[in-house]
Every structure is written in C-alpha cells, then in structure tokens.
Design a protein around this nucleic acid. Structure first.
Lengths: 209, 209
DNA sequence: ACAGGTGTATAACAGCGTTATGACGCTGTT
DNA sequence: AACAGCGTCATAACGCTGTTATACACCTGT
C-alpha cells in the first residue's frame, strides 16, 4: 500500500460526477467497516457491495490507501457531528458544561463506533497511515472547535488561567485517554459513568475561577 | 484467526523444553515487530527468522493469534520494566513525583516503541483481540503497581481525597491520552515536554494536601 | 524390535492488495 | 464522418497472507 497522496489530489480539485460515486463507495465501505470491523474491509467486498470490480477503488481512490484516507476523514466527520449534536441541548457558549458534553459525546462515539475509532486512532487498517494533509485537516477541525469552546469560557470568565489551546489540549488528552482505555477494555471502574463525569471535570476544575 | 485461548493453556501449565523455544520465537517476532511494524509480522518471516517453518508457530502457539497474545503480553512486560526502571532514580514511595516519573516512562515507551504500543492498545494486528485472561493479567500488573504507588502517597499524606484506585485510574487516563494522541501525531504543542509535565501533574494537583 | 504418538516440513487452499491486459465508450480533431 | 487518443472498466494473473491437510522423521513405551 503506497501513499494515498497522489490519489487525494483529484479529491480536492475536481467536483465532477465522480465525486458522488466516491461518496457512494465511501458509504458502502463505512457500513462494511462499522458492521464487520476493519478486517471485513476488503477491496473485493467493497467492490461487490458497490456493484463493480476492485479496479473501481483504484480509479476512484488510487488504491486502498486512498479509500482508507477517505474513511479516516469520514470518521472524524462523524465524530465532529456527534459532538456538535451534543451541544444542541447545552447552555450557550461560555459554560464549561459544554466541554463536558463534548467529552461525553467523544466517549460515546468511541464506544459505539469502535471500528471507526480504531481506524482513526488505532492503526486498524494494516499498512495505512493517513496523509499528513488529511490528518492535519481532521485535527484542525476537531481540535479547533474545542479550542473555540474553551476560548468562549475564558472570555466569559468561567475558566481562568492558561491559554485556550493548552486547556483544550488538556481536555482532549483526558477524554481521549478515557475513551481509548475503555475501548480497549482496560478501564474497569465499578461505576464507569461516574468516573467519566469526574475525569472529564478534572482538567476543568483546575481552571475554575 | 481464531481465539488463542487454547494455545495459551499450555503456556501457563507446562514449563518444559518448549518454553524457551517459545521465548526465542517471541523475541524474534518482537524484533521484527519493532523494526518493521505490525505489517512485517508474517508467519513466514517469523519462521524463517527462527529457522523453521510456519508450522512451528502453530505447534508452539496454536496460530498467529497465540503468538500475538504472547507479543501483547511481552509489550506490557516491557512497559512495566520501563516504568520500574524510571522509578530507580526517584525518591522513595510516597512522593507523587514517582507518579510523574511513571507517566514520563509510559509516554517515552509509547513514542519509542510505537509498534508495541499499537499492538497493545490499537488493534494493529488485523484480526487479533487479546484473550480476556491475558488482557486481565496485563491490566492487573500495570494498573496494580500504579495503584500501589498512589496508595503509598495516600498513606504518606502527600495526596489526599478519593480512593487509590480512582486516582490511579485518573493518572492512567491522562498519561495514556497524552501518549496515544502524541503517537498518532495529533498533539502538536509548541513545547511538547512542557505540556507533558503540566498534563501529568493535573490529576495530582487536584489531590494535593 | 516394534507400534504409537509427537513434531516438523512440504504443499496446497482461499483470501488479500496490486498490476497488466484488453475491451469499451467518450471526446476532440482531421 | 471517420479517426486517434484518452479514461474507465472487468478479467486474469502475480505474489503475498494465514491456515490446513498430508507425509515423513523421530522419539518413546512395550
């Protein structure tokens, strides 16, 4: 599996008819991934699902690496959507409780979509490493919105001390460690939900006014 | 790849001559894993390295899953050893600085042995999930020694509030999130080391007397 | 000395990602 | 209008993977 860099160039430049076909294949692959795990993701099965031959993945994505890159981005898109949805029933920006809600959604995503989570953070697709541009873009999206929420709290005075970036990093680290360890079956608390709530608040409590 | 449960039974019961051969194969596989990543771990290459045929892995481990299980345990053994080594140059038990040292060693392990880290926490071997008994044993070892260190701090009064288990979990979550995100290239601080030091102390500062 | 079982190597199988080959349709040019 | 050129697709093949069946060697207990 070679670098998907070349395969991704057209993804950013052309928006012709091939774009929706790409999306269709990504959705088939995503369903296959979610239902059968990373092991079920074979070009032949994806091609059969999409009603074509394996060559289809090569013309659309340049190979499995290109498709994996698209799935990686799709996973981050779903994670972002889940976090955004969790904010809908929250107090307006500036309340640290929004950060806790994001953390809950992050953990829920990790536990309910373990295959995506493994592709995104766990090297679940054998020889695939995301393109630096894709990885950077996904990171910027995910992390950027978190920084914005933290900045709103700093502006509102509900959190104090440190920069928004550093505090957001701290939140991400905590919630990711929580999610990854729990997803790996390593975190066996008597009351997981209570521990999650406490853990999510730990980095925030250090910066309460 | 089927469950390695059957293959692991003899590992715990028999200590005959086959035991050292198993260890030799595990060491060959570990070197292959560390040098070429999870993708380089093929039965044929392992067998060639060990001077035998692929069948050797089947007689010794019952298949690739059994060998993966042994590698998984080997990874936790190395992680434990690294953490123990870091404690050698530390103040005696009861000083929270020991917990920070463990965290540093954990992160260093994740960054310097990414392949092992991925096998242990990231589903890097395609269809492998560790046996519950292996996973439980590794967790008990890793987490247990951390709990003991936290308990020493509670006994010494250098940390207060909460149970040793819960506080240890919090430390683990923080340091694991740090290590996993940094290993995935997602944590791009201007001064990573400074952030690491700050992050490692966050869960401790909440429980200082 | 011989039968039985264990362990190993060889070869085969199905599956994988990838690539070469040839056929098809579309587009722009002559 | 006929042609050349390009991109897309399916088929088949290559080398690799994990796994399994088969056959041969060796070692042990009678």
């Amino acid at each position: 599996m070679t670098t998907p860099e070349a395969a991704l160039q057209p993804l950013a430049t052309t928006f012709e008819d091939g774009d929706e076909r790409r999306r269709a294949v990504v959705e088939s692959a995503a369903r296959l991934l979610a239902e059968e795990g990373p092991h079920g993701l074979s070009l032949r099965r994806i091609a059969a699902e999409a009603g074509g031959s394996t060559q289809l993945v090569y013309t659309l994505f340049g190979g499995k690496a290109g498709l994996a890159d698209a799935l990686y981005a799709e996973g981050f898109g779903r994670l972002s959507a889940a976090c955004r949805a969790a904010l809908a029933t929250c107090p307006p920006p500036g309340d640290p409780e929004r950060l806790v809600a994001i953390g809950r959604a992050y953990r829920t995503f990790a536990l309910s979509e373990p295959a995506f989570f493994a592709v995104m953070f766990g090297k679940a697709i054998p020889d695939f490493t995301p393109t630096t541009s894709t990885s950077g873009r996904c990171r910027a999206n995910t992390f950027g919105s978190l920084v914005a929420e933290v900045q709103a709290c700093l502006d509102a005075g509900t959190l104090v001390g440190g920069s928004a970036e550093e505090l957001a990093r701290l939140c991400w680290v905590t919630v990711h460690g929580l999610s990854a360890l729990e997803s790996a079956g390593m975190l066996r608390a008597e009351d997981p939900d209570a521990f999650v709530e406490a853990a999510l608040r730990t980095p925030l409590d250090a910066h309460r006014p």
